[in-house]
Nucleic acid binder design. Structure first.
Lengths: 214, 214
DNA sequence: TCGTGTGAAGTAGTTCACAGCA
DNA sequence: TGCTGTGAACTACTTCACACGA
């Protein structure tokens, strides 16, 4: 019955998330209105693309003053965020995991890491950055009881697939994967790979683009 | 004189880097030949795309046995890696920086993090994972003297732009940016943003795709 | 006049499908 | 037969350009 939104591209979603962050900064600076060109400059995009992206929100700007910052942010919240808030789990509390916990602290109240897991018993049950760390054998129960649908995998590659399987079995439908392996998951589970090695090699390659020997 | 390769897409480069990692695993397992379909399955891609990507290498597979693993790896090395090896710098040795140092240890001998910088004097001059940590005021000199062209920014967002400016001034041409800000750099500097907040919001959004209330 | 919203055009990226080779 | 290499078709994404509204 409810209007099924037709699929919106991953890239549009990523840019909307970026725009929102930029808008939050503008709002904190007291800016009340913004035109597509400004947002485009801040995001390193074109004005046309910003307008195209914002179309999916169904939030109309004014042709005189552009978009109202507060309204846009509100619209994005409705579009991007889960209505009742969404909890995320983190698996693997090594250096990367700790960095992630710190990174997400207080940043998105609507999408907070509320449970962490680690196989190292010495880490278990000690809260890190106000987030309790559970031993691995509690994963299924904690994830299910808190209705966690989103998880971050920050474990060594050898165990990443096993962790993914357990998360999916416990009800997780979206995974942000930092482990350098290709996870096999059912079709209805979304995986985003953040592969540092690949990214660094990409940077190294393109850093040489215009290289000319003297 | 040398044939100028026409621009190859970022995504092809990223996939080649991924294929290489998969090939290294296969080689370690004693596999000597691979067909496009196998590689595609491992990478979660289609066979046609693998073949298309491999075309840029100019390495011909055999129609009987597919591609020779060792030959492909060799070809990729020639294509992706800097001939004489390339040093990378890391700026910001917090949890994330430490995780990165550990992650890249021994992984790519041709592209190693050989210098790290941090503004915290207590971290300076202590080697972490065999990589010396310098105070920030040595950045320009160390980067220049080692001919470092690739850098990773893992500092808080407030100082990321300043760090980028200093890196670029010191000769860096490619930046892997973990700070959640859009860096302004000259056109000939390549920036890859690895934005964890954006990625997590993307995952959260797509995790809800097929969500149907009971 | 200036900025949005958006069809239409253009560009980039992927997949198809098949010739050719071992 | 089975697999590569690749033009051609297709799909996805971006930009153009302009009607419309404040």
């Amino acid at each position: 019955m409810a209007g099924k939104t037709r699929p919106i591209s991953e890239r549009t979603i990523a840019r909307l998330s970026l725009y929102r962050r930029l808008l939050n900064v503008l709002q904190a600076e007291g800016v009340t209105h913004v035109v597509s060109r400004q947002l485009a400059d801040l995001a390193g995009r074109t004005a046309a693309q910003v307008r195209r992206d914002l179309m999916v929100l169904g939030y109309a700007g004014s042709s005189a003053r552009g978009y109202e910052v507060a309204g846009l942010i509100q619209s994005m919240r409705q579009f991007l965020d889960h209505p009742g808030g969404q909890n995320a789990a983190l698996v693997g509390v090594g250096n990367l995991g700790k960095a992630l916990l710190r990174h997400f602290i207080g940043r998105r109240p609507n999408l907070a890491i509320t449970a962490a897991f680690d196989s190292d018993p010495s880490k278990a049950n000690r809260p890190i950055n106000a987030c309790r760390v559970w031993p691995m054998d509690r994963l299924a129960r904690v994830v299910r009881s808190r209705d966690i649908r989103v998880a971050i995998i920050a474990v060594p590659p050898e165990v990443a697939q096993e962790v993914a399987d357990r998360l999916v079995a416990a009800g997780v439908r979206g995974i942000l994967n930092f482990a350098p392996v290709c996870l096999r998951v059912p079709d209805d589970v979304y995986v985003e790979d953040l592969d540092m090695t690949v990214s660094l090699e990409k940077v190294a390659y393109f850093a040489r683009r215009d290289e000319a020997p003297s």
